[in-house]
Amino acid sequence: MKLHISNETSRLKTVILGVANSIGDQPKLEDAYDPKSIKHIKEGTYPEEEDMIKEIESVADILKKHDVEVLRPDILNDYNQIFSRDIGFVIEDKFIFANILPDREKEIKAIEHILDKIDSDKKIRLPEHCHIEGGDVMPHGDSILVGTYRGEDYSDYITARTNVEAVEELQKLFPDKKVKSFNLRKSNTDPKANALHLDCCFQPVGNNYAIIHKNGFLEEEEYQWLIDLYGKENVFEINAQEMYDMNSNIFSISETVVISDEYFTRLNEWLRSKEILVETVNYREIAKQEGLLRCSTLPLIRE
């Protein structure tokens, strides 16, 4: 398999889509990875497996409708494998393994049957001290956009998933690209003040548009850099509630087709006004785990 990913929106050919089967019991509070999951565990509204299977399979149906090759992980018993984006990412023709939370290493093994089709010299593991997850990484032509957290209290945040060392390692791996990092707002307790990954507060869409939540960025100038990159007239600004609902975590099949949550009425109207076809699904249950459509997908080949 010859990988190719140079941006977020070119025509998608092959993708790994997560699975919701056999996710196991509801996690204990102390085992939850993010504040939104914690909230729903406390409130007794944590999602049911049956509902999440229905939601993710609706995404599979749309991808296949648009002639995308959909690959799936092997199903592990009693294990959450919905968010395939966390476990790796592709830049150009290289698959880079995410250095993820240790508890989730099994998820990599569940896609080995897919990774075996990739040449060994195109599969890269970063040094152990480099923490990184796919939700923080966005190829953007000659640039790579990366969410991180630069605070000295990095180790205090389970929501801080990509460190500065990983950003520096990406620059070494891709010396011909500009690696631009963004210092993201983190909270272990408040889901409305936590940008778990870059795709929780920013995402390119179409040919030259972007979805952005200003308060997800700790540095005003880094937020402004994105505004200048796209032009203010091409940016859809989302508020704190919309970030919490994960409006920036839709998924592009091409520059003219996206999958979005039917709940995102304001965003979807804006996308349609830009002549983008919006394929909608109901993803309200999966969203309770602080992940949505981009989180569920790991693109391998785009045109």
Rank of each mutant, 00 (worst) to 15 (best):
R272C: 08
D74A: 11
V15E: 02
E255L: 06
V281M: 10
Q26I: 15
Q81L: 14
G44K: 11
E237M: 09
E237F: 11
N234L: 08
P127W: 03
D103H: 06
Y33V: 09
L271Y: 04
E242T: 06
V137M: 03
N215M: 11
H129E: 11
G134I: 07
Y46A: 05
T297Y: 01
K288V: 09
Q81M: 13
H40A: 08
N99D: 05
A160G: 10
P47V: 04
R72E: 07
Q26F: 15
Y283R: 13
N268Q: 04
Y46L: 06
E262I: 12
D245Q: 14
E168V: 00
K36E: 12
D121R: 05
D153I: 03
I301K: 06
K192D: 03
I132T: 09
K178A: 08
E48D: 10
D136Q: 03
I91R: 01
M246K: 02
T159M: 08
T280I: 08
S6F: 13
L300A: 03
E279T: 08
K123H: 11
E50T: 14
K65F: 02
N194V: 00
N282K: 14
K54V: 01
I118R: 09
L170G: 01
Y283H: 14
F174V: 03
K172N: 09
L293Y: 04
H129V: 04
K192H: 07
S296D: 01
H129C: 00
D25W: 02
K109Q: 12
G44H: 11
S37H: 10
R294K: 13
V137R: 00
G216P: 09
Q224H: 15
E30L: 05
N239T: 09
D176C: 03
V257D: 10
V167Y: 03
E222L: 14
Q203Y: 00
K36H: 09
D74P: 02
S254T: 11
R85H: 02
K177H: 08
K54Q: 05
A240S: 15
K177P: 02
D153Q: 02
I87L: 10
E237P: 05
K180Q: 09
E237Q: 08
R150E: 14
I250V: 13
K192M: 11
M243D: 08
P175E: 06
K232Y: 09
S181I: 00
A193W: 00
C200G: 02
K2S: 12
G134M: 08
D61T: 15
K123F: 08
K122Q: 11
I211W: 08
V146N: 01
E50H: 13
V164H: 10
E262C: 10
L229H: 14
D103F: 07
S120E: 14
R302E: 05
A160Q: 08
G291C: 11
D136H: 07
R294Q: 12
Y283Q: 13
K172Q: 05
P73H: 04
E221L: 13
Y79E: 12
K274P: 03
I100A: 06
I100P: 00
R266P: 01
S187A: 07
A166D: 06
